[in-house]
């Protein structure tokens, strides 16, 4: 962050606090902004000049610096560890670069961790299972989320706000607590089983918790808002007159949905599906708490490599491999969005 970059920021805040140079610029900017019409020799106010000179760089720069510090750097560290070898010590892996005798710099890249992932079917199975679970969850979320989003988008404006609030409301509670709550609902002497037994529908409790069913319930429940919100955004923008035009031209409601509404809501479907699919692949907490003993998901494997086996290099390799798996859908998503944005621009 440069001093000049901070200048306009403080100027806008009106309370310059750091550095004499910064203060003078900021005060000048503040004064210029306050006194309307006072301009410098170039016909623009000082603040405008500052904003033009540094404003854009600052606005673009801050998120990039953020990503660099908290995303790229940790990623590089993990990447580095994935090429190291396990050893007992601190840190628990071998260094990548080492000075050896004779002034040589030795680079040791251990590909063994990645080969090991292919070697042991556990990892491949876990990857494939994660993809399957994520895919099925995304489909279920889409099937539940689409009608929800559609109903919200077509509700009266007052109700629309209420429904949207209800969709977002679960975020007020911690994610972890909400997943724990599902244990209380699904366990053998939980809410559902007790209710069914007291109604006399069943004699012995149904095994709900720690099954595939409870896993899907957990994932779909947790990520449903991420499906509903982008779908709502696209459906709400859609001109009702298009549906009316389809009906007017002799198209029955369901066919009008298939030929007009569905294709036009494709960007929302893609966005929502990505927002559910990507985090679901790497999900750890839900399979750990709600999944069964047989539920093998890559997030869980990753966790046990790090914390049970304490094999950081293999764990890092698992993480890198998972990232690569996830990058593919993101790239597809980006490509689709880009194409859509282009189309929007043309119109």
């Amino acid at each position: 962050m440069s001093g000049a970059g901070e200048g306009p920021g403080h100027g806008l805040g009106g309370r310059p606090t750091t550095g004499a140079r910064t203060r003078s610029i900021a005060e000048a900017a503040w004064a210029a902004a306050g006194r309307d019409g006072e301009r410098n020799g170039h016909g623009r106010t000082r603040l405008q000049w500052l904003m033009a000179r540094f404003g854009r760089g600052t606005v673009i720069g801050i998120p990039y610096i953020w990503l660099l510090l908290f995303f790229l750097l940790p990623f590089l560290i993990v990447l580095k560890i994935s090429f190291a070898e396990f050893r007992i010590g601190l840190p628990p892996y071998t260094p990548l670069l080492e000075w050896i005798e004779g002034g040589y710099l030795q680079i040791k890249l251990a590909f063994g961790n990645f080969l090991f992932l292919l070697d042991d079917p556990l990892y491949v199975v876990a990857y494939l299972n994660s993809l399957k679970v994520a895919l099925v969850s995304t489909l279920i979320a889409l099937l539940i989320g689409y009608p929800m989003a559609y109903a919200i988008a077509r509700a009266s404006p007052t109700w629309r706000a209420v429904y949207l609030l209800l969709v977002i409301l679960p975020f007020w509670t911690s994610f972890l607590i909400r997943v724990y709550a599902w244990i209380g609902i699904l366990k053998n002497n939980g809410l559902i089983n007790n209710a069914l037994i007291s109604l006399g529908l069943i004699d012995s409790p149904l095994p709900l918790l720690n099954t595939e069913v409870s896993l899907y319930i957990g994932i779909v429940y947790s990520y449903l808002p991420f499906m509903v919100l982008p779908l709502y955004a696209t459906l709400e923008k859609m001109d009702i007159a298009l549906i009316e035009a389809a009906a007017d031209l002799g198209c029955r409601p369901f066919k009008a949905f298939l030929t007009v509404t569905l294709p036009l809501s494709m960007p929302g479907i893609v966005a929502g599906s990505m927002l559910v699919f990507i985090p679901a692949v790497g999900e750890f907490v839900i399979p750990d708490l709600l999944g069964g003993a047989g539920t093998l998901m890559i997030g869980k494997v990753l966790w046990s490599e790090f914390f049970n086996n304490r094999d950081w290099p293999v764990a890092s390799a698992v993480a890198i491999a998972m990232l690569i798996f996830l990058v593919i859908p993101i790239v597809v998503f980006q490509y689709y969005q880009h194409k859509h944005a282009e189309r929007a621009e043309e119109s």
Binding site: D239, A241, L242, E244, A245, A246, A247, D248, L249, G250, C251, R252, V260, P263, L264, S347
Partner: peptide, 20 residues
């Protein structure tokens, strides 16, 4: 009678052309 069974057609003010 619902719109899709009527022998009339409408030209909308916004035209309502299918963008896709």
């Amino acid at each position: 009678v619902p719109p899709y069974d009527r022998p009339v057609n409408m030209m909308f003010q916004s035209y309502a052309l299918f963008p896709h």
